[in-house]
């Protein structure tokens, strides 16, 4: 039983759920004891920042013929009204994702840039798939995301994980 007031233990919750579905092997999340770290190389007021989401475009154009999702990008202005979250794992009983700002806060970030907190958003935001396959994420999606951020001149990134 979860301790009220404490963060939900999603790994344990997920293990129990998939066992109840009848899966024999537990999902293995990527595990690391340490993390790489790059300091911000310039003052925040001069930094151009990219926003990343795990959601998909409504037209499904990030999916190939086999249904695999790929990295996708779209302009921050005009920002999309809505995105597709139907492929993602989130609490459909408790909340909704009809307010795009609640998971991809483009307007909030733009307002902060307008106030001078940072230089501005990159011209595009980027969508990255949440994959069962750690190998696909590392071999395909991570390098593709890096290439797009470099192309956009991003000095830093805010990643919003649904």
């Amino acid at each position: 039983m979860d301790d009220p007031g404490q963060p939900v233990g999603y790994m344990e919750r997920t293990r129990l759920y998939y066992r109840a579905l009848g899966y024999k092997a537990d999902y293995q999340w990527a595990h690391n004891e340490t993390a790489p770290f790059t300091p911000l190389a310039k003052p925040l007021t001069e930094a151009r920042i990219a926003l990343l989401t795990t959601a998909s475009p409504l037209d499904g154009s990030n999916k190939d013929a086999k249904g695999w999702r790929h990295v996708w990008s779209a302009p921050v202005d005009p920002a999309p009204d809505a995105l597709d979250t139907s492929d993602l794992a989130w609490d459909r009983e408790t909340t909704h994702t009809n307010d795009r700002e609640s998971f991809l806060p483009l307007a909030a970030a733009a307002a902060l840039a307008q106030e001078g907190r940072f230089a501005g958003l990159t011209p595009r935001f980027h969508g990255v798939p949440t994959e069962y396959s750690i190998r696909k994420t590392l071999a395909q999606d991570a390098p593709e995301t890096l290439a797009r951020l470099r192309e956009d001149g991003a000095d830093a990134a805010i990643l919003c994980a649904i």
Binding site: Y10, T85, A89, W90, D91, R92, T94, T95, H96, T97, N98, D99, E101, S102, F103, L104, P105, A108, C160, A161, I162
Partner: peptide
């Protein structure tokens, strides 16, 4: 899960 950037 669903609203990491703030309540709707």
């Amino acid at each position: 899960l669903g609203n990491p950037a703030g309540l709707p």
